[in-house]
Simulated scan of single mutants.
Amino acid sequence: MPDTSLSQRETAILLLLMAEAREFTNPELKEQFGVEIGKKEREHLQRLKLIEVGKKGQAFTYALSDDGWARAAAMFRDGIPRSSRLAARALEAVVRAMVSGLQRHLERSSAPLAEIFGREEDLGPGISEEPLAEPPVARAAAEVAHPPVARVPVSEDIETSIRKAYAQLADKANAWVSLTRLRPLLGDVPRDEVDATLRQMIRRPDVRLVPWENQKTLTQADRDAAIVIGDQPKHRIWIGA
């Protein structure tokens, strides 16, 4: 049976690649974080299928695989083993990368820090933490499970129509609803008017628009339905009670 345990450096590498969520070369890792992936670590992480290795010129490239994302998530859920206590230098690199990743998430989602770091019971009545993106098959099954809904009458103002459409689609209080499903309920309201209204609505404390965390699960319909705010496509809406 292959050895699935990770060394201190391998644990740091996995967490660092997770926090940055992109492809790296060794020179980039060395320059930004003072950490390099050696041959021994590369081969071990490849055998465990935790990283994807490519080539850019003469340099290897490294990115987390799906199994690598799952392993990193398990570390956060279960806690980093005491036997894998990170070396100070590697830990400093991981912390810097995680702070950078947190800043990107805040820019994308406009989530307040109190919501991210607060306990669930402190987030306010009925407000739950943002769910992870579902895999394509699970999303497709969920869409099929929803019963048909009628278009919202266009006699009222657009914000009211959006709120009524959201209420029809939300399967529970404070649920996240995809714009892919919401837009068709607005009938013939011009796209630019709907988008202008959504941009106004996110200034209200009870409305948020966020992107899908895992962009690989997006369909073309999801991309077409997105609204771009601050150079970031947003795919889901949340409206508080």
Rank of each mutant, 00 (worst) to 15 (best):
E159P: 00
E36F: 04
R77M: 13
L123K: 07
A12I: 03
G54F: 02
P190H: 04
L106D: 07
I116W: 12
K49Y: 09
M18S: 15
S100C: 01
T197E: 14
I202P: 00
H44Q: 10
E10W: 01
M98K: 13
G79K: 04
L48Y: 03
E92P: 05
V95D: 03
A111P: 08
G101P: 00
A88N: 12
T180S: 08
I158Y: 05
A87T: 11
A221I: 04
M1H: 12
F33W: 05
P27W: 00
R163W: 02
W238C: 01
F117M: 15
L64W: 02
F60D: 06
L50S: 04
V137H: 09
Q200G: 14
L179V: 09
V189A: 13
A241F: 01
A140H: 10
L123Q: 07
P205E: 10
Q8V: 05
V210W: 03
M201K: 03
A90M: 06
L86W: 03
V99G: 08
V194F: 05
A241R: 07
A150C: 10
V177G: 03
F76V: 15
H44E: 09
S109T: 15
G68Y: 00
V207T: 06
A59P: 00
F24Y: 11
E52V: 10
L14C: 15
V189R: 12
L218M: 10
V228R: 06
S5D: 10
V228N: 05
R47T: 13
R108W: 11
G240H: 08
D66Q: 08
A70L: 08
E159Y: 00
A141K: 14
D67I: 01
K234R: 15
P135T: 13
D195S: 03
F76T: 14
D78G: 05
V207L: 08
T197K: 09
I202Y: 01
V95G: 01
R236W: 08
F24T: 02
I239Y: 06
A111H: 09
K39N: 14
K49H: 12
D224R: 13
P184N: 10
A90K: 03
L6C: 03
R77H: 14
D171A: 14
R89L: 07
A72I: 06
P184H: 07
T25L: 08
P135N: 15
F24H: 13
L50Y: 04
P81C: 05
S65K: 04
D157H: 11
S84L: 01
